[in-house]
Amino acid sequence: MFYPNSPQTSPQLTQIPYGQQYAMMQRQIQQPYHPFATTEPQARLYPYHYQGPIQQEQGGFITQQSTAASPQYVQMRVTPVDQSIMSGYPNQTANGSSSSSFNYNIHPQQQQQQQQQQQQLRHHAMPVGSVPLQDDRYRKQLIVNYLAPDVTSTDLHELFSRFGELDGARIIYDKQTNMSKGYGFVYFCHAEDAKEAVERMSGYEFHGKWLKVGYSTNPLNIVPSNSSPYVHAGSRGAAG
């Protein structure tokens, strides 16, 4: 039997160049792979992502010199942007860049009308829970959420009447099932009393439920100042 490094198959040491006398086997001759043993700084910083320098080929596509990437890492192929796409944008300079302001050559009167329309939209648009300043009635009506099913309009009136005089209180019921929808409205005579009720009743436990109280901004629920107070009856038909 002959071994790869046996004296019968191995040459004389004098015939082997210096430095390879003890590297006779194939696994010894093959050098191990060192990912950080390279002179390129990109490979030292990113050993798993770097795959060699990027070269520009004919046709405008950018390719990489090395083989496919590892399945664990996804390499994105980048193509140059066609400058003709950006030619339609206004205020574009000769080098292809555009300024931040756009001039669509709008007539001054049209621009003024658009600004007025935007101001009107901001004036009428009102986020949930906010209180408008032009109508004091919005500051007097509250919406009470997360009410228990057994709470009546009379219970709601008695709960909030300790903060001040009320114009009314009612629970909203479903017309088909005649069941409470879980929320109601309270109408105060003074805005200061309503503000105190919002601050003190939010998070209050009532009939096993934690109440959420806020201003009601729905104009359909506003009680006119010259109208008669609501009837605080315990029956659902009268309260709904």
Rank of each mutant, 00 (worst) to 15 (best):
Y3A: 04
P4A: 10
S6W: 13
S10Y: 14
S10Q: 10
P11R: 05
Q12K: 02
L13K: 04
L13G: 06
L13H: 07
T14F: 15
P17W: 09
P17Y: 14
Y18A: 03
R27N: 06
Q28V: 11
Q28G: 10
Q28M: 15
Y33E: 02
Y33M: 13
T39R: 06
T39E: 05
T39W: 15
E40I: 13
Q42F: 14
A43R: 04
A43S: 06
L45V: 14
H49E: 06
H49K: 02
H49F: 15
Q51I: 14
P53Q: 08
I54W: 10
Q55H: 13
E57T: 11
Q58F: 15
G60K: 04
I62H: 06
I62P: 05
T63A: 08
Q64N: 10
Q64E: 07
S66V: 12
A68R: 12
Q72D: 08
M76P: 06
M76Y: 13
T79P: 09
Q83D: 03
I85N: 08
P90V: 11
T93P: 11
G96S: 04
S97L: 12
S98W: 15
F102G: 08
N103T: 13
N105S: 04
Q110C: 09
Q110P: 09
Q112S: 09
Q112C: 05
Q113R: 11
Q113M: 14
R122S: 09
R122I: 14
P127V: 14
G129H: 07
P132T: 04
L133S: 07
D135T: 03
D135A: 04
Q141T: 00
V144C: 05
A148G: 06
D155W: 01
E158C: 14
L159F: 00
L159W: 01
L159N: 07
F160L: 01
S161V: 14
F163P: 11
G164V: 01
G164R: 00
D167T: 01
R170I: 00
I172D: 00
I172V: 01
Y173L: 04
D174Y: 05
Q176P: 09
Q176W: 14
Q176G: 09
Q176H: 12
T177M: 06
M179F: 08
K181M: 02
V186H: 04
A194F: 03
K195M: 09
E199T: 07
S202G: 06
Y204M: 12
H207I: 00
W210C: 02
W210M: 02
V213H: 01
L220I: 13
N221K: 09
I222M: 08
S225I: 04
N226E: 02
S227D: 05
S227W: 14
S228M: 11
Y230P: 07
Y230C: 05
G234N: 06
G234W: 03
S235N: 07
G237F: 06
A239E: 04
G240E: 06
G240Y: 14
